[in-house]
Design a protein around this nucleic acid. Structure first.
Lengths: 348, 348
DNA sequence: TGTTAGCACTCTCATGCATTGAGTGCTAAC
DNA sequence: GTTAGCACTCAATGCATGAGAGTGCTAACA
């Protein structure tokens, strides 16, 4: 299962060359560019072996070789050299997170943008919302006669709001009363715990404002429900257009149509984000026909020991794995810190 | 400047045919498909005239004719038949707005999605935030020891929030006090009015909580500032990939790179949204090199008589203007109603 | 004077064919 | 085990050719 040193060398050369040029690479090129101290003929023999073993393949007889999914896998597992980000890049990331303490959604969106800008690949950021979200706070804000805004805050750190019509007779003071009662009764409850008895209590206490109460409870229910769904943020979707393998519009369409479907994307990432460290899924390892020419490099981020979601980079199977690994690793580390700070209290 | 009936007929035939087939249309085709009662030769003569006048052009000698920007303009201004949406489509729109009263951002996002789904073009929704936004309400929500969430509501109906660190010594009651003071002092003020004297007053009253106050004021400032910016929502960006004129990746890239730049997009729409009714900008009429092969059909939406922004459809110059006009008109009408309801109090 | 048929002309596109060049696999010699 | 040499394969390129679509022009017709 493991290759001898020279074969490894040759495989490495093929992969590195193919990653940068996107052209099949022949024995001559390797002999010339990567000094192995042997002639093209020798390399040809080794390449024939590598092909037989399934690490490389030939698009057609008279072309050079290109790495197979299996070849990339071997590279990622055994040959790839650890890379670090440059100081400037690290600074870019840190700055982006430091500028202002943002809400969760904004942080994740920014993470996606940053990831794609640094790497020129397409970035996916995904939140899993592990476990149940709890109700934290509600606020009924009087806006004008006949209208108020309901604001609900959940303990996952997100805010939901909605504007509702109210009877003209209701004033700011009434709204405060309702807010107070709801906050007192529902504080810290998850969806499941908001049982009928509890609701009855509230309705009893606020019998007069049944209409408003309905609307407010609606929003609370929706807010807690939405939180348990996965959410996906994309960044730099158009970057894939720069990859030569996507110069044909049909391929672009297939991939984009997939990216539009959040659920499918979530499926691809969901089994990995709880694993420690950076993972790659290469070509057909991804159980999705439409991504068979792509790879994903991804890792989970967490806060307070709890996995929260994952970030990933999507590129052609020919992508620069070493760099992708470095970036994803650095970003998850920092994202985890930021999330920790946002959700679980200060960190420094 | 105006054409005789037969020339109009021929121009109309060319445009209609080209819109559906995307192929240059020749004299024979017109004679066969659109019964004008004259021979191809006659049509050829007329076409030569139309070409001289600049309404149509020839990609190359032995091809048929295609409409020029000027031709489309004539069509839109003089020949286009008013269209209506089908009952199902109208229902789709209404349902989408009725399902739930949402916040402004959500409504606009949904509008974009809907527009693109109905038409298969790319949709742009743009908010101008005319005039000054005023502060409406602030709320400091205690989250955990050392952390609270600041929620700011503006009178434009949007909510901004941020999580901040606070001294451990601060409890929920302190936060309520601060909220109360801020609400009392700042209610209904626009950014300009929040002058130094006012701020001094507040700081005097809440001298102890200087740190929190700083953070809260920061958010208020940001919220009011953001509101005055334009915002752009896109829908169905990938729809352009279905247009045959975008089967070449370079063109897609140029257009997408433009769509990514909100500012440029805003410039294209900004001079139109205050005008009554639906407007088209065809090809080179758009003062942007990168959109010379595209057209935009757009109209403004408003609430309480105030123009708020615009919605538009982007397609190739060969787009189906009649349909685009119908959809944009219907959507603006409905969007205006919804916005009216959201921002200015109930409408029905 | 406007309309039409006929015809030569132009240009694109698809097809076929020969050429070139990159790259291989095999064999025999080192 | 390594290498040089050579025949072979195949994609890509360039070129010629023919078909097809469409035009513009001319001359005849109503």
């Amino acid at each position: 299962m493991t290759l001898d040193a020279r074969k490894e060398h040759i495989l490495l050369a093929i992969i590195q060359d193919y990653i940068t040029t996107a052209e099949p690479v022949g024995s001559r090129t390797i002999a010339r560019k990567y000094k192995l101290g042997v002639s093209p003929a020798t390399i040809r023999n080794e390449m024939a072996d590598l092909e037989e073993m399934g690490y490389i393949e030939q698009p057609h007889t008279s072309a050079g070789r290109i790495p197979s999914d299996r070849g990339y896998r071997y590279y990622v597992d055994n040959l790839m050299k650890r890379q670090e980000l440059s100081k400037e890049e690290e600074k870019l990331v840190l700055d982006s997170y430091l500028t202002k303490v943002q809400d969760v959604g904004q942080v994740l969106r920014r993470t996606g943008q940053l990831l794609s800008r640094i790497t020129n690949y397409t970035a996916v950021v995904f939140t899993a919302h592990y476990g149940k979200t709890k109700f934290k706070h509600i606020n009924l804000v009087y806006m004008s006669s006949g209208q108020c805004m309901v604001v609900v805050v959940t303990d996952a750190g997100s805010v939901h709001y909605r504007i509702i019509d109210i009877p003209e007779s209701i004033g700011p003071a009434d709204l405060e009363t309702i807010s107070a009662v709801l906050n007192r009764k529902l504080q810290g409850q998850s969806m499941e715990n908001i049982k009928l008895t509890l609701i009855k209590e509230i309705y009893f206490e606020l019998a007069k404002q049944k209409h408003i109460l309905n609307m407010a409870m609606d929003l609370i229910r929706d807010s807690l429900a939405v939180e348990t769904e996965e959410k996906i943020y994309l960044g730099g979707v158009f970057n894939i257009l720069n990859q030569p393998e996507f110069h044909n519009v049909e391929k672009v369409k297939t991939l984009l149509s997939l990216l539009e479907q959040e659920q499918e994307l979530a499926n691809i990432m969901v089994d990995v984000f709880q694993v420690e460290g950076v993972t790659a899924r290469i070509g057909e390892e991804i159980t999705n026909e439409r991504m068979k020419d792509c790879s994903v490099v991804m890792a989970g981020y967490r806060a307070g020991g709890k996995p929260l979601g994952g970030i990933g980079l999507i590129g052609p199977t020919r992508m620069d794995y070493a760099r992708a690994f470095a970036v994803v690793e650095y970003m998850t580390k920092n994202l985890s810190l930021v999330m920790e700070r946002l959700l679980c209290g200060r960190n420094r």
